[in-house]
Computed example of a mutant assay.
Amino acid sequence: MVVVNYLLMCLIFGTTFLAIKIGVDAGVPPFFSAGLRFFIAGLLLFSFMVWRRKTTITLFFWKEMFFTGIGLTFGTFATLYWAEQYVTSGIAAILSATGPMMIMLIQTFVLKQRGSRTAIIGCVVGVIGVTLLILPSFSIVINPYWMIGCIAIIIGEVFYASGTIYTKHVIQTFQTVSPIALNAAQMMHGGILLLILSFFTENIEFESIITKSSIGSLIYLIIFGSMVGHSLYYWLVTKTNPVFPSTWLYISPLIAVVLGVIYYHEYFSWLTGIGALTIIVGTLLVNFETLRGLLRGKSSHIQDVEKLAE
Rank of each mutant, 00 (worst) to 15 (best):
G191R: 10
Q172F: 01
F159K: 10
G163Q: 07
S162M: 15
V170T: 06
P179A: 01
N203F: 09
I192P: 03
T211K: 01
T164G: 08
I155P: 09
I165C: 13
K168A: 09
K212T: 00
A161I: 08
S213K: 00
S198W: 11
I165S: 12
K168I: 08
M187D: 11
T176H: 11
P179E: 03
I204E: 07
T167Y: 13
A184R: 04
E202T: 01
I209S: 01
H169R: 14
E205S: 13
S198K: 06
K212R: 00
I171M: 15
V177K: 06
F200H: 06
A185K: 11
H189D: 06
I171E: 13
F174M: 02
A161C: 07
Y166A: 05
I154C: 09
H169I: 12
V170E: 02
G190R: 06
I154P: 07
F200D: 03
Y160D: 11
M188D: 12
F199K: 14
E202D: 05
F200P: 00
L193K: 12
I155V: 13
S162T: 15
I196C: 08
E202N: 08
A152R: 12
L182I: 10
V177N: 01
F159P: 11
K168W: 04
K168D: 10
A184L: 04
I209Q: 01
L193W: 03
V158L: 15
L195Y: 03
V158D: 07
N203M: 14
H189G: 11
F200G: 05
M187A: 13
K168M: 10
Y166L: 02
I171Y: 12
L182Q: 10
F174P: 01
F174N: 02
S178K: 04
Q175L: 05
E202Y: 07
I196L: 08
Y160V: 04
H169F: 11
